[in-house]
Design a protein around this nucleic acid. Structure first.
Lengths: 243, 243
DNA sequence: ATTGCCTAAATGTCAGACCAATTAGCAGGG
DNA sequence: CCCTGCTAATTGGTCTGACATTTAGGCAAT
């Protein structure tokens, strides 16, 4: 049985305005037409437009400024991914917790990748590895290249959940690393070692050796965890000294 | 510098009504006071109350029914967990994808648990195992006992992310199993084998042997995956036959 | 007992008014 | 000429009152 669903007017206005933003008729930072104009344009009352504005505001898409107007804050509506990011990004979550979760996710991901990797997948992954290599040779932090590599790796699993979760974890880590100046990767003897670990992972995937791939990934992430522990210890010591 | 934040009236009304619901002044299914009464009670206009109602409705806490009133749908505001559930529960996600993700999460979780398990933790876990055992002996499906066991296991990691994610995965799987009549656990030779796998996991944790714990968990989840594959094949065959 | 209609009350929507904040323009003093 | 401060217009924020639509319950006719 199909139940008839009441459709509130403000909901239709929300969709209309949302479409205007996502389709690019108004860019981020632009001022939307006034509420009174929307009301006239859509043949509804200003109340309906205001209710729609409240929804759009709570979606984080617009900001209503009295005396000025309504400004576009972002051009895309929040997705489930954003909520996942919120979970991972919560301040209570330590970077250690995040790294441990990543360990579970990525070790199994690389295992699946080793079993399911096609020639095309491998080519893309090796390309990402080369980009990472070049960036490291230039002495860059290469955070973006590292992110790309790991996301590409997760995509080889062909499992949307791994792709979504790994993408979220990786971007949160990238943010965290930016805040902490990415000291981890910059430490003496850091990048070359990280690079060789990445190569070992790709090598195992190439041979479709899932067990070796897991071991290589576990080794890599244990090293990252170890360095992070050292870094945290170092900071704590500095904090104590500064008292 | 502390910026002064404009506080919209409807936001305060939202907090007021939300508190009334979460504190139990109104139970699920109850009819809230009318919008006009709220307006009078809080000394605001009905517009403000209506805007608050829209927010509460979009939070999924209330349902506004014309001619009747506003009924309470749930007594707790949605948390990040609910959005995680939404991600995992999305129809596009196959049960296979979910199981594969669970493999990554839980293998590493049991590894952490083996390293961090206290005597008290172990006692609780063994208690859950006994409950599972008794339920299986009675010939029950024991879905809830299985859920409890795995959530307890994840809590031993002391890592909030693992606890949150594992709880979500487990409850989604429980729902899915309910829909599919939990055939997996009911198959001949199913429960006893599952039980022995659980015992092996607990045994490894007891000995703080993280590597053996991972292997035991991998074996267990591979078996679950295998059975699920068989089940899906079986259903496909039945579907073909019924054409 | 069922059907149909009437009424009361609630939400949904509308129109208009006023308040508060912002902006732009203009007048006046330096 | 430039800066200051006032004024008016514009915009979102709130309030009020009205009407439309939906629901529930009472009541009479069938």
């Amino acid at each position: 049985m199909d139940l008839i669903k009441r459709v509130r007017i403000y909901e239709m206005v929300v969709e209309k305005i949302k479409a205007l933003i996502t389709e690019g008729h108004y860019q981020v930072g632009d001022l939307l037409p006034t509420e009174r104009e929307f009301a006239q344009r859509y043949g509804v009352s200003r109340s309906a437009v205001r209710e729609a504005m409240i929804v759009l505001h709570r979606l984080g898409m617009v900001d209503n400024i009295p005396g000025k107007g309504t400004v576009v804050v972002t051009d895309s509506e929040p997705s489930v991914n954003d909520y996942l990011l919120e979970l991972l990004n919560a301040e209570e979550q330590s970077i250690i917790n995040l790294l441990e979760l990543r360990k579970g996710i990525e070790i199994e991901a690389v295992s699946l990748a080793a079993k399911r990797c096609t020639k095309k997948d491998l080519a893309v992954l090796q390309e990402k590895l080369e980009l990472l290599e070049k960036a490291v040779e230039k002495g860059e932090v290469a955070a973006k290249e590292d992110h790309d590599f790991h996301v590409t790796l997760s995509s080889i699993t062909k499992n949307d959940l791994y792709i979504t979760v790994m993408t979220a974890i990786s971007s949160v880590m990238q943010n965290t690393l930016e805040k902490t100046r990415a000291e981890t990767l910059n430490k003496p003897g850091g990048p070359p070692r990280v690079l060789s670990e990445h190569k070992a992972i790709v090598h195992a995937i190439k041979n479709n050796d899932d067990e070796k791939a897991r071991k290589a990934m576990r080794l890599h992430l244990d090293n990252v965890l170890h360095k992070t522990y050292q870094e945290l210890d170092h900071k704590n010591i500095k904090q104590v000294k500064s008292r």
